[in-house]
Design a protein around this nucleic acid. Structure first.
Length: 325
DNA sequence: AGGGCAACCTGGGGGC
DNA sequence: TGCCCCCAGGTTGCCC
C-alpha cells in the first residue's frame, strides 16, 4: 500500500514503539520475505538476535532501523524494510495472521510483525555505508543524510543525525525525497538542481516522478494526484517543459504527500503501527486516483484512466491536456 | 544510456 | 457455485 506518507506514518509509529527493546528471537515464516539476505533466514535471525533497534529512519519508501549489538556497541548494520505492494509492520502482543511473514519477539514479551500478502516486500539486515550519492550539487560524500523526516514526531530525536551520515548499502542508489528538509524548500538550490535533472533527457513527467533515483517516495497514486493538482498531463515531456512548470509539479507532489501525512498521522494507535489498508487514512481524499468516471472536482468532466507504464494513469482530459503526438 | 517490459507473488472482485 | 480474467499503491533485471 505504501508510498512515502504511509511509510513515514509507519516510521513514526515504529519509532515510538520498537526502539531500545532487546530482540529475543526472530521467526521467518516465509523465506521469500528475507530473500535479499545472502545467508537466508539463518543469517537474518542470527544477526538480529540480542540486538536493539536504535532509531527509525526513512528515505523515500525505504525504512530502516540501525542496530545496536548485544554488547551495547552500535553495529554497522540496520534492519532494512521495504513494504513492497502490501507490506505492513505492526506492534502486537500475540496472536497470528494469515499473511504474517516475519515475527520479531522482544525480550519484554512484545512482538513486531511483518505482514505481507503479496511478498513483494522484504526485510534485510544490511550494512550501513556512508552516503555517496552526492545529489544536487554533486559535492559528494555525506552531503545528503538519509531522509530523517521533518514530519514525524521523533524528527528531533532522529535529527540528532547520529545516523544521518550512514545509509544501508542497498538504498544508496535511492535519491532523497521531497520531505527531506533540503528538498522541502520550493525555491531552494537542491530543488532547482532536481528540476534540472528532471528536465535532462527525453521522457514524460510521470516517468520522471516515479524514478526513485531522481526523487524518491512518489508512487503511482501521488504521481497522478500531483499531476492533477498542477494540471499537467502524465506524458508531457520534461525536457520541453518550462522549469517553473516542472517545479510546480514537484511542489504539488510534496503538498499532496504532506496532506496525506497529516491525515495518516492521526489514525494509528498504540497497538497497530499500521492500520488495516482499507481503513483510516486510506480514505484520505483523492482527486483522481480510483475516481474513473467520476466528475473532476475542478471542471466536472469525467476522470479517465489509461494504461501507462503497465499501470493505470488517472487524469482529467480537460484539465490535463495530452501532448500532440 | 536510457526506455520498455516481463517477472516476482497472492489474493479480491466482476462477468459469465 | 465455479471458472477465468483483470486488477492491485513497487522494484529489479534483462533486452533493445
Amino acid at each position: 500500500m505504501p508510498e512515502l506518507p504511509e511509510v513515514e506514518t509507519i516510521r513514526a509509529g515504529a519509532a515510538t514503539h520498537v526502539l531500545d527493546r532487546p530482540i529475543a528471537a526472530v521467526e521467518v515464516l516465509r523465506e521469500r520475505s528475507v530473500r535479499r539476505q545472502g545467508g537466508g533466514a539463518a543469517e537474518f535471525t542470527a544477526r538480529l538476535r540480542g540486538c536493539t533497534l536504535t532509531a527509525a529512519v526513512r528515505r523515500g519508501k525505504f525504512l530502516w532501523f540501525p542496530l545496536r549489538g548485544p554488547d551495547g556497541v552500535a553495529e554497522d548494520a540496520a534492519l532494512l524494510v521495504h513494504l513492497g505492494m502490501s507490506g505492513q509492520l505492526r506492534v502486537m502482543e500475540g496472536g497470528s495472521h494469515p499473511h504474517l511473514r516475519v515475527r520479531i519477539r522482544f525480550a519484554d514479551g512484545g512482538q513486531f510483525w511483518f505482514i505481507d500478502q503479496r511478498t513483494f516486500g522484504y526485510l534485510w539486515v544490511a550494512d550501513l555505508v556512508p552516503t555517496l550519492d552526492g545529489g544536487p550539487g554533486g559535492v559528494g560524500t555525506l552531503e545528503y543524510a538519509p531522509a530523517v523526516s521533518d514530519a514525524g514526531p521523533l524528527a528531533q530525536h532522529n535529527s540528532a543525525l547520529e545516523h544521518a551520515a550512514l545509509i544501508p548499502a542497498p538504498v544508496a542508489h535511492i535519491a532523497p525525497d521531497l520531505l527531506d528538509p533540503r528538498l522541502a524548500e520550493p525555491g531552494g538550490p537542491q530543488r532547482r538542481e532536481l528540476v534540472r535533472r528532471m528536465r535532462r533527457g527525453r521522457r514524460g513527467i510521470k516517468r520522471a516522478l516515479l524514478d526513485q533515483t531522481l526523487v524518491s517516495g512518489i508512487g503511482n497514486i501521488y504521481a497522478d494526484e500531483a499531476l492533477w493538482r498542477s494540471r499537467v498531463h502524465y506524458d508531457r515531456r520534461t525536457d520541453v517543459m518550462p522549469a517553473a512548470k516542472a517545479g510546480a509539479v514537484l511542489q504539488s507532489a510534496r503538498e499532496v504527500m504532506v496532506d496525506a501525512l497529516a491525515a495518516g498521522g492521526t489514525s494509528f494507535d498504540s497497538l497497530y503501527v499500521h492500520v488495516n489498508g482499507d481503513s483510516g487514512y486510506f480514505s484520505r481524499s483523492l482527486d483522481v486516483y480510483g475516481r474513473e468516471g467520476e466528475p473532476c472536482r475542478r471542471c466536472g468532466r469525467p476522470i479517465v484512466r489509461e494504461v501507462f507504464m503497465n499501470r493505470s494513469a488517472a487524469f482529467c482530459r480537460n484539465c490535463q491536456r495530452p501532448p500532440r503526438r
